[in-house]
Design a binder for these strands. Structure first.
Lengths: 144, 144
DNA sequence: AAATCATTCAACCAATCGGTTGACAATCAA
DNA sequence: TTGATTGTCAACCGATTGGTTGAATGATTT
């Protein structure tokens, strides 16, 4: 599952990287809102708000339904769920008990696979217990 | 808890909005990496990679320890946890059963509190069951 | 038909982004 | 000391961002 649909993630995270847009999403959490209603709390022009809304829309975070002359927006949680899932991968790192275990496992793993005799001199003091990067040279996946 | 520390969230989500940086984080998930090691999978200059790493660092997503001439980076999951928590607010929207319930509750709530007779004309067709924005004018918190 | 309302569009602006190159600083190996 | 190695810094570049203003579009009201 590692980092497919990267372009989507870019747009979603980028959309979330702005406080104005996050507040708009938050407003939409309690129901539909027109563009004007979404714009109202902010001291920016309606055009600027409209752009923010378009960013949210193209990120798939909201959907728009044109009712007469007003555009009604509602949340689409799909991309939020994706972002949430992406972050969940790192959950073990902030879940401390698991993190400690995982760390041990990683180090053990590193110790098992460690460097297949790369450079001649084993200048390893062996004391500090540095995890020592596993020699596998990092798979490539997403390319821009 | 609604959208405090907004500046942090900006930098974190912005940092996550780039595939290169996400892949760097992913690499760090399996252990420490030097700047060079982090840069290696990418076809960009070391300087560019260094900038990415600095973005991650100032977002608090990684920490750096200078060992001799090499800078060793490791993940700091704190901000990831924050982002995850922020997204969790919307969890009910993609958890369908809960979503349906919540929706009902919201509508019920909206019906109970509905507009304290704002504009004169009750042009409400009352048929479509639109949630009807609660008249509370959206609390302001974060200001850029 | 005219006015008003809700919203987008187009052009512009300054700031930021992601990238480059070349110079620099520091550490380590010879 | 000389020379790699590891990484940052500074200057620059084109593209994108978030904002503005003014005009244009479309639906509703009068």
């Amino acid at each position: 599952m590692v980092e497919l649909h990267a372009e989507q993630m870019n747009t979603v995270f980028h959309a979330l990287g702005d406080g104005t847009r996050r507040r708009m999403l938050h407003a939409l959490a309690s129901g539909e809102r027109t563009v004007g209603e979404l714009a109202e709390p902010f001291e920016i022009s309606l055009a600027a708000a409209s752009k923010h809304i378009k960013v949210l829309e193209t990120a798939g975070l909201i959907r728009r339904e044109v009712r007469g002359r007003s555009h009604v927006c509602r949340l689409d949680s799909g991309p939020l769920a994706s972002a949430h899932a992406w972050l969940s991968f790192y959950e073990r790192f902030w879940n401390d008990r698991l993190a400690a275990l995982e760390k041990l496992l990683r180090e053990e793993d590193a110790a098992r696979v460690t460097r297949p005799d790369t450079a001649g001199k084993p200048k390893k003091p062996a004391g500090t217990g540095k995890p020592a990067k596993p020699s596998t040279p990092e798979r490539k996946s997403e390319e821009k």
